[in-house]
């Protein structure tokens, strides 16, 4: 009974699927879907290396500090960093005193006036998180042509392609190619949009943020502040803001793997030992089989008589 019902149910599902298949295929061949501009002209992120890549990757503190500088001078006008606190900057090589003065001198955070209860601002302290540049999402959209500048704390983890994508986006602004415009005239960037082939739909609302070499003045001993260098530095900084515990994670991972490989090897040897017992029990063809032992004994005795050794 189960099989008869099952058979009919199975035929039912298969039948509907066959109908679906033919309907879809005939639709596909009668009206082939049109290729879109983003499908043809979207580019995969550029190849770019960071010191934090790989299982032994470490952050480069000097680079992260330069990246922080780029963030503060360029990105912070529109993008927040709400999950990062100033105290976290100690992790990228600033001393507690530096963090304190940097928070107090460079940042203002919203607060409530303790006497009047009104909204106001005060100098930041290390335990504050980075302030949002806009009081709310509506204000952010109003100031940016209805495009919302996302918070950057997690941006590297929140975008397919990760850090290389962020770097490519920052350095990828260009004029749309003539070929693209000839093929898809509607792909030309509209007002307030900028062509960027690394962005999903090719037109991004963010104006090119890093436009010229030397836009940010790096301190002494730093590499030249080229557009690529600044983009790379700020991307490295954003890798850190997205995953500040990465170094301890990788370090712990290596230690645990070393421990586990020894433990696994020992456990495997123990397993072999335990099972040697069981295998002897059911391996009557082995050298320890009583029958074989007897044979060997006999062979040895014969060999002794004939005065030669025996191969076991």
């Amino acid at each position: 009974m189960v099989r008869i019902i099952g058979f009919l149910v199975g035929l039912g599902f298969v039948g509907v699927l066959v109908i679906s298949l033919f309907t879809d295929l005939s639709g596909y061949f009668n009206e082939p879907p049109q290729e879109s501009a983003e499908y043809k002209y979207h580019l995969e992120p550029k190849e770019v290396d960071f010191s934090s890549d790989g299982p032994f990757g470490r952050f480069d503190d000097a680079q992260l500090q330069r990246g922080y500088q780029v963030y503060r001078e360029v990105c912070a006008a529109c993008h927040g960093l709400q999950y990062v606190a100033f105290r976290n900057l100690e992790e990228i090589g600033y001393t507690p005193e530096q963090v304190k003065s940097l928070a107090a001198n460079e940042w203002e955070v919203p607060t409530i006036d303790p006497e009047l209860g009104e909204e106001t601002t005060r100098a930041a302290i290390p335990s504050d998180t980075f302030p949002n540049p806009y009081p709310n999402a509506i204000a952010a959209r109003a100031a940016n042509n209805n495009a919302y500048p996302p918070d950057l704390s997690l941006i590297v983890k929140a975008r397919e392609g990760g850090a290389p994508y962020i770097y490519s986006l920052l350095t990828g602004y260009q004029e749309p190619s003539k070929k693209l415009l000839a093929e898809f005239p509607s792909a030309a960037p509209g007002t307030g949009l900028y062509h960027n082939p690394y962005f999903a739909n090719l037109n991004i609302a963010m104006p090119p943020p890093i436009t010229s070499d030397g836009q940010v003045t790096y301190g002494e001993g730093a590499p030249e502040a080229t557009v690529e260098q600044m983009a790379k530095d700020v991307t490295a900084f954003l890798i850190w803001t997205a995953e500040p515990r990465m170094e301890s994670r990788k370090r712990a991972g290596i230690a645990i793997l070393i421990f586990l490989s020894i433990a696994t090897l020992l456990a495997f040897l123990a397993y072999r030992n335990v099972w040697a017992e069981a295998k002897r029990q059911v391996a009557p063809k082995g050298p320890l089989d009583p029958e074989n032992m007897a044979k060997r004994e006999q062979a040895k005795a014969e060999a002794a008589e004939e005065g030669r050794g025996v191969e076991g």
Partner: peptide, 21 residues
Amino acid sequence: TAKDGWFILLVLMAYVTVTFF
């Protein structure tokens, strides 16, 4: 228990590799 024991450790190694790296 011996057979499971070492195999659990082996699978944990794969798990740790994914979790940490």
